[in-house]
Write a protein that binds this DNA or RNA. Structure first.
Lengths: 149, 149
DNA sequence: CCTTGACCTCAACTATGGTTCAGGTTGTAT
DNA sequence: ATACAACCTGAACCATAGTTGAGGTCAAGG
């Protein structure tokens, strides 16, 4: 019954889940998706190496950064099993850093456009950057897309 | 056949979709969700007032800002049908601006932590802010959460 | 030994935000 | 008048990211 902290070797699914702050079902899910990997006891119970703590940690960081699991898996599959070295993690975190940077820039642009619109009575004035330019674009034959990108 | 641009009054579903840069099925979907509203011809075809252009535009802006549709609906329901005034839009865009600001701050923090980790060989060093503090937190009895929040 | 918590599988379900398809109807240009 | 584009409905399906539940097994303390 007692969840003894097993300082030495393998982790049960419950331990891994608790230590990573996720539900057990999430660990099952990640394993089914091939994001993490472990072995089984003779009684078919999951056991994980301690490196899976880091792996789940990385998955969670990536998710916070907005990386979908499939993308995370792609990255993690480059170091198939086990430990990710500092250098490998540096590459990963550089990639995700850059992606985050892009997302931040996009959101910041949008935020600033909203800021402008608060001042301008947006979506009703001719020069509003958020305004769908209605007939203008319609007459240009384009799809009348909202905003620049 | 020809999609004549009807300068004067109502918009067909296809016109609205094209002018907003979304699929027709998306317009159907938004209508079913109660996000937009129109009327029907005697032949049961959808017609929309021009104010729906702005309404769909607002929905798309909100989505880019990460507002779920249910939330958008909540906001839009405050001005039940038709035109949203400049003042009302100002309130809306202020709210979404603030929300965006929060998200930007969160992502920026994460980005900067990733930046630190690129330098520190992250997730393997004791002082890494992204590192799951493993046994430390485990011994504190907490869930060994990743990162501060 | 036996209870009890932790574990197992598989299927179904949740929510979000849509898309696709089948089968049938409308509206308009020629 | 007729063809053909555009429209209609409803159900099924897609992806993402899991959660929940039923029914059964494992393992460790007393």
């Amino acid at each position: 019954m007692a969840v003894g902290i097993n300082k030495n070797k393998s982790l049960t699914v419950g331990e891994l889940a608790q230590r990573c702050g996720v539900a057990i079902s999430t660990i099952h899910f990640y394993e089914k998706k091939g994001l993490i990997e472990g072995w089984r006891t003779t009684g078919n119970q999951r056991r994980y190496g301690r490196q899976m703590l880091r792996r789940v940690a990385i998955i969670r960081v990536a998710q916070r950064a907005g990386v979908p699991l499939a993308k995370v898996k792609e990255h993690l599959d480059r170091f198939p099993r086990g430990t990710i070295t500092a250098k490998e993690w540096a590459k990963l975190s550089q990639d995700w850093h850059d992606m985050l940077q892009d997302r931040i820039v996009a959101l910041t642009q949008l935020r600033d456009q909203l800021g402008t619109c608060i001042g301008c009575g947006c979506l009703s004035l001719e020069d509003c950057p958020l305004r769908n330019p209605d007939d203008v674009l319609a007459e240009e034959g384009s799809g009348a897309m909202l905003l620049v990108d």
